[in-house]
Design a protein around this nucleic acid. Structure first.
Length: 858
RNA sequence: GGGUGCUUAGCUCAGUGGUAGAGCGUCUCGUUUACACCGAGAAUGUCGGGGGUUCGAAACCCUCAGCGCCCA
């Protein structure tokens, strides 16, 4: 039912039906055969296990804002949704379910387990998709993608083979990050470094002439030591280098070597070399031909040390080893707790164990170089640019990427091994030779997400989608996954697409923090639920709050009160629109000629025109916060507090049909401008007002420079000053709002047309009066006939306050103008401005003094 | 250790050379024919400290202090 709005705004009643309508109408569906220019965003794929958290809500709000704006601007806008298979996370979820029945994945076997995961996905996966509908995401559901889909899997095989053939994928035995709980290798970025309270002990090795004390935080690994290393220039140990020293407990002799890697300042300047259990030690061991002694199994349990510690958990062994060493009098010093950074599995928080193991790696140097260049030469822009150094810092020093995972859920590595150690990479559509066995591992989840901007568009098939929508326009994401994801997409995108970058712009936003600016975390209990917020305040209020807080690359604090404030804004708009419609606001017919309009109408059109051009520029440059701020103040201050108030008299008297048309126009344009951020409420109000089909497919407003009217703006500013002055007077005098005061205006001609409007706002009764008090600004005087005598004290206080302000302003102006340097160097316009300020404040001071004189006479 | 950002009103934050701003909170008054999820008015700041550049600095430079994030 158009043409009417319910007396109160109820988000819950309008949101779901509107979303259904939009999807049914196909507004979000992009057409690859369209002749319109393309605008593409691929969604950062949420985990299939995930649900919508407040960070998604922010990320999606910003993307939806851009996509909706571009759609209105006439672009063929595609926002492509989808999900990530999230290898470890998903496997953990399903394994946990199995564990409830006392089963492990090994009990089921690989094939059955994977089937189980797919079942889980179809039953419980993707909860986030419905939550995205709540938020109003204008994604093209017909193109929904999943990283394990057939098409995307083909993309994975294709690029794996291409990388392998060019020597960019290799298999090697290296020290990798190992999670003893997930039982898989992890890449560097899947490891979180936390400050842990550990221990730092100094252990004396050797006896008699050959003794040396080493420092360690992982005493148990000494059982696997292959050497002791010192810095080559360290005079303390010069004589010991080359000698063999007794390794306690293990009762082996190991060499003392010299290597540049050792920091002579750290600890005793001598370090133990445990080649199989530490990446730095590994490097040294390779250089010095030190044997790799593996003393721990995949579960982090001691094994193979041939000591009594075998069979102990690594942490139990740590204590036991230290005690055993102490018993031998070999502990020279110990610090406990010793706070140092320790790696933890980002999925399960288990302490990472560096482990010697054979894994597949991507050789990143050439790929990273291209990814760096694409940003350096300007093909890809990072917004805000302050974050670019962080990108370079990472990409210029990136280590080779360990891509194999000892999991079952994911893209299985397409490498087959023959009976005589032959290695064959099997591309899409190819078959492995008879008798070959496939590598059991799967690829890191980020391997497939790195292909997202083109695998979702059909690659490796040269599809219409790929031709139309690649490269994508902008990637909107939090700076926290710049390394995880963005850098990898850059590397693979440039490689797979023959140097064509995956996106033109990387627009980074910050993180949502709690109301005190603290990081949200489950352990702190300060997380918030966007769904609850939408239930309470509506999706528009949540979206507006997030967009209003989104300064490029900056974190934002969020509190429930902020969202309440946005809900209030929505209510305000709703009520203003109801009021406008009750008073006949219309969008029918042409806008009246400018010269036939009164100054108030011309003023709001002028303000609107500036708003449109400013908001447009701001949204195009990802300045969501500033754009929202401008809209908020235009709507609340200019439109509601001033334009509607100043128009009430003419609307009530029915004398102006022009105002009804202008009001309709302003609302129409405002709704268009605000629609990308608050789609639901604007759509509802706009349809009621215009009786048109949908704002989603309406045109984006264009600023009309002819509407800019400085004269009208100056006049209305003057009206605002008078009105504020009179309000202060009434307030200070304690005159009730409801009490009408007989009054008259003494003002120049150009004000006369607006005296009625002002009197209405100020509740003044115009007529011939005997004045007993007055207010005055610049060229306008308002005289009142007060039935009771005025509060002289209050009036004196008010005037004296104004006087002191004016005097201070005058003084600053005088000082400037008396400054020879200022007069000589300041630009002409600034000098004129200061002169005008001086004149204005001088007149102000005279006027106030006269009023104060008058007051003493009363 | 390397990189990077921040320090402005009680709180959270805008503000890149010309009289210090917003939201929320606070105080006073008020139901006037859209709205109390409201209106009107008010208070609140040596813009972290110290130097410098400039006619003029919250902003540019140097320096000190504190906080944060990323990486090692």
């Amino acid at each position: 039912m158009s043409g009417e709005l319910t007396p109160s705004f109820s988000p819950a009643d309008i949101e779901a039906p509107l979303y259904k309508k939009w999807v049914a109408a196909g507004y979000f569906k992009a057409d690859a055969s369209s002749t319109k220019p393309a605008f593409t965003i691929v969604i950062p794929p949420p985990n299939v296990t995930g649900s919508l958290h407040i960070g998604h809500a922010l990320d999606h709000t910003l993307q939806d804002t851009l996509v909706r704006m571009k759609r209105m601007k006439g672009f063929e806008a595609l926002w492509l949704p989808g999900m990530d298979h999230a290898g470890i996370a998903t496997q953990n979820v399903v394994e946990k379910q199995l564990a409830a029945d006392g089963l492990t994945r090994h009990d089921m076997g690989r094939e059955a387990f994977i089937k189980k995961v797919w079942e889980w996905k179809s039953e419980s996966g993707g909860a986030i998709l419905d939550q995205m509908r709540r938020l109003g995401d204008s994604v093209d559901w017909s193109r929904e993608a999943f990283t394990m889909d057939a098409g995307l899997s083909t993309a994975v095989l294709t690029i794996f083979k291409k990388l392998y053939d060019q020597g960019l994928i290799y298999r090697a035995e290296r020290i990798i990050n190992w999670c003893p709980r997930c039982l898989t290798a992890l890449s560097d970025i899947e490891v979180d470094h936390q400050e842990d309270a550990g221990e730092f002990v100094q252990v004396r090795y050797g006896d008699g002439d050959v003794q040396i004390t080493v420092a360690t935080t992982r005493a148990e690994t000494m059982l696997g030591d292959g050497a002791v290393a010192v810095h080559p220039d360290d005079v303390r140990y010069k004589d010991l280098v080359g000698k063999l020293v007794l390794l306690p407990l293990a009762n082996r002799y190991i060499p003392i070597i010299a290597d540049e890697l050792v920091d002579p300042e750290f600890g005793t300047g001598a370090v133990k070399v445990t080649a199989a259990h530490d990446p730095n030690d590994f490097e040294m061991a390779v250089r010095h031909n030190i044997p790799f002694v593996v003393i721990m199994n995949e579960h982090g349990v001691m094994e193979g040390s041939d000591t009594r510690f075998d069979g102990m958990d690594r942490f139990v062994a740590r204590t036991a080893v230290v005690e055993a060493l102490r018993a031998e009098g070999r502990i020279m010093d110990e610090k406990r707790p010793y706070i140092h950074a320790v790696g933890h599995c980002s999925r399960c928080e288990t302490t990472i164990e560096p482990r010697l193991s054979k894994q597949w790696f991507v050789k990143v140097a050439p790929l990273a170089k291209a990814a760096g260049e694409a940003v350096r030469d300007g093909r890809v822009r990072i917004e805000p640019e302050e974050l670019a150094p962080r990108y370079f810092d990472w990409i210029d020093t990136m280590h080779d990427w360990c891509i194999s995972r000892q999991l079952w859920w994911g893209h299985r590595i397409p490498v087959w091994y023959g009976p005589n150690d032959e290695v064959v990479v099997v591309g899409p559509g190819e078959r492995a030779p008879e008798g070959f066995i496939q590598d059991p591992d799967v690829l890191d989840t980020w391997f497939s997400s790195a292909l997202w901007p083109f695998s979702t568009l059909g690659w490796p098939v040269q599809s219409d989608d790929l031709k139309k929508f690649y490269p994508t326009s902008v990637l909107v994401t939090g700076y926290d996954i710049l390394f995880f994801w963005v850098a990898r997409m850059m590397m693979f995108g440039l490689f797979a697409m023959d140097g064509v970058q995956p996106f033109h712009t990387i627009a980074l936003h910050g993180l949502v923090r709690d109301q005190y600016g603290k990081k949200m975390s489950k352990s702190k209990g300060n997380t918030v639920d966007p769904i609850e917020f939408m239930d309470t305040y509506g999706a528009d209020a949540l979206r507006f709050t997030l967009a209003r807080g989104a300064n490029p690359g900056k974190d934002q604090a969020l509190a429930q009160d902020w969202i309440g404030g946005s809900r209030n804004f929505a209510t305000k708009l709703w009520n203003a629109t109801r009021f406008a419609m009750m008073n006949g606001a219309t969008t029918k017919g042409d806008l009246p000629a400018l010269d036939s309009l009164n100054a108030i109408d011309r003023w709001i059109l002028s303000r609107l025109s500036q708003l449109i051009s400013e908001v447009d520029v701001l949204l195009e440059s990802f300045e969501f916060a500033r754009a929202c701020e401008l809209i908020y103040h235009f709507a609340w201050d200019d439109l509601c507090d001033w334009y509607l108030e100043l128009s009430k008299e003419s609307l009530a008297s029915g004398k102006s049909t022009d105002t009804k048309r202008v009001l309709g126009f302003v609302l129409d344009q405002l709704f268009r401008l605000l629609h990308p951020v608050m789609p639901f409420i604007t759509e509802t109000m706009w349809i009621a007002l215009t009786e048109n089909e949908s704002l989603v497919i309406a045109d984006w407003p264009v600023s009309n420079t002819e509407h800019i009217d400085k004269k009208a703006e100056k006049l209305v500013t003057e009206l605002q000053e008078i009105i504020t002055q009179v309000r202060r007077f009434r307030n200070d005098q304690g005159i009730k709002t409801s009490q009408k005061i007989p009054a008259r205006f003494i003002a120049p001609d150009y004000i006369h047309d607006y005296v009625g409007a002002m009197a209405f706002v100020l509740r003044l009764e115009l007529g011939e009066i005997t004045p007993s008090a007055h207010c005055e600004i610049a060229r306008v005087k308002v005289e009142f006939d007060l039935t009771h005598s005025i509060d002289v004290m209050a009036e004196r206080a008010r005037l004296e306050k104004d006087l002191s302000t004016a005097k201070k302003d005058k003084q600053t102006a005088e000082i400037k103008l008396a400054n020879a340097g200022f007069m000589a160097n300041a630009p002409e316009a600034v000098v004129i401005e200061i002169r005008e300020r001086l004149a204005k404040t001088s007149a102000e001071i005279d006027r106030i003094n006269a009023q104060l004189d008058n007051l003493t006479r009363i």
